[in-house]
Design a binder for these strands. Structure first.
Lengths: 137, 137
DNA sequence: TCTTGACTTAGACAATGTCCAATGTAGGAT
DNA sequence: ATCCTACATTGGACATTGTCTAAGTCAAGA
């Protein structure tokens, strides 16, 4: 993730202050912010950045495969910059916090063809749900 | 699911026309409607049913463990009445259609303790994403 | 049949996300 | 160094999904 900006420039991204700030906010391994959280953090550095730009930029990063969009609870989507390493999520049912975990084995065994019902499958997600240490108290 | 109404009555549910209609709409194995779809279908039989009642009733059914709430795309949640048989979901990335599939083995192997980060895990979800036969065309 | 607490209703409100027309600007061309 | 222009940003209106509340209604036991 640290050389994200170079990768993006290499793909012809026009590098603006807004995009740089959004990318910097997302830098880090265990970060799973909502769009509004990204907006708030970006605005600390670039006060007049608009919500629309944050949404646009996040959408572009998802399209480029640099971050993964995670919808765990029907509330705000969260954005996961750890797109280059296969991982799964631990989600708190109360506060929505997400934590990455790493595959314990190769559970991603593909579905047998007869269970695919004609779908062209491109990804598998595994989500463990429960209460985080904070909310369990 | 077919004797859902009896189970609910047995739990002290007050049986109203609205609840009956919502439960009937959800009857069926491969049904995964959004709350608005449930409302529209319920309104065909009981025209003046309100959205609030549909939301309330769906929430109660989830609390009672009779249906499962599925959030696959950050858009509307879908309600899965097939709560009594373990299963996984195949989700179309374009149209949001959901299809049930049945565990091919016991992939639900628990996470090792050192990967739980103090979470009290209560459920595991597996979602396969791709394009359904319709959208692939 | 009466009564009562649970249920339903309409609509206001909240949270999240999308879209658009007007304005600004990054970076190549000159 | 400056100019151009296609692409990016902005603010605000709008859309979708879901929640809440106060007032009216009704299921089911007495």
């Amino acid at each position: 993730m640290s050389d994200l900006l170079e990768r993006l420039r290499g793909r012809g991204w026009r590098l603006t202050a807004q995009r740089r700030v959004v990318a910097e906010v997302l830098d880090g391994d265990h970060v799973h912010y909502t769009a509004d959280e990204v907006h708030a953090l970006a605005a600390e550095r670039l006060p007049e950045i608009s919500r629309a730009t944050v949404y646009n930029t996040l959408g572009e990063l998802v399209t480029l495969g640099e971050v993964i969009e995670v919808s765990t609870d029907g509330r705000a989507k969260r954005y996961d910059p750890n797109a280059h390493h296969a991982h799964q999520h631990l989600v708190c049912a109360r506060c929505g916090t997400i934590r990455d975990v790493h595959p314990s084995g190769d559970l991603l065994a593909d579905l047998p063809t007869q269970e695919r019902y004609g779908f062209a499958i491109s990804a598998v997600e595994v989500t463990y749900r429960g209460l985080c240490p904070n909310c369990a108290a």
